[in-house]
């Protein structure tokens, strides 16, 4: 897998490059700014770009803007956003602005090679990725009594994985369940929450996230 890494912090950028190289990922370029990133992507046509959300000049959402630009002009290139923000709003924005092949992980995941590689793998295969910490905060968020209380523990677990962007196959592997069982869980969950069944994967992720965010 060929990736480009963009982060304005040199230590982090180079450290991450080495870590990924050690794990067998082909790091074909690094960038310190959004423009440099876009040039690198255009030049090297990687499978994936790993992008820090805060980059110069304003250190706010340059990463999200760059991600959108990359997905628009190079649809074959996936994007993984690294962010300090645990608020679901930015993840939601990323997923809303880009159809698929995009992911949002908390920055501290960089040292968690397994999670990182898994996310890269899934994005490369065409899935969306939302950081488990963000999803679990959403699931545990205090709320009025409602349909969520009706879900069994197993169903809550499946719901969380759906929100993290896992496909049914992924959920089967994670929970070691049969595809039929997972399908049943998913159908029950969507029914109980009143979310219309949608065959489309990306729409389902968005719908589940939106439900959990309560908006």
């Amino acid at each position: 897998m060929r990736v480009v890494i963009a982060d304005d912090e040199t230590l982090l950028r180079e450290g991450l490059a080495r870590l990924l190289a050690d794990a067998g990922v082909d790091v074909v370029g690094t960038a310190g700014t959004a423009e440099e990133l876009l040039r690198r992507v255009a030049l090297t046509r990687p499978d994936l770009a790993i992008v820090d959300i805060r980059m110069p000049p304003t250190h706010t959402d340059e990463g999200l803007v760059a991600a959108q630009e990359i997905r628009r002009s190079h649809p074959s290139v996936g994007v993984l956003i690294l962010s300090h923000y645990v608020e679901s709003r930015y993840a939601m924005r990323l997923l809303e602005e880009n159809d698929e092949r995009s992911g949002y992980l908390l920055k501290e995941r960089v040292s968690d090679v397994a999670v990182l590689l898994d996310a890269l793998q899934r994005i490369d295969e065409g899935e969306c990725v939302v950081d488990p910490t963000i999803v679990s905060r959403l699931v545990r968020k205090p709320r009025d009594h409602g349909p969520l209380d009706e879900l069994t523990d197993r169903e809550l677990e499946v719901l969380g994985l759906m929100a993290e962007g896992h496909s049914n196959d992924g959920i089967c592997r994670k929970l070691v369940l049969s595809p039929k069982t997972v399908e049943t869980h998913v159908r029950h969950i969507l029914l109980k929450l009143g979310i219309g069944e949608t065959g489309e994967y990306h729409r389902r992720v968005l719908a589940v996230l939106a439900y959990l965010r309560g908006r």
Partner: peptide, 13 residues
């Protein structure tokens, strides 16, 4: 936080 993440990365390496 950025430093700590960097440190965590070095530790990982």
């Amino acid at each position: 936080q950025q430093r700590l993440v960097g440190l965590s990365l070095s530790l990982r390496l």
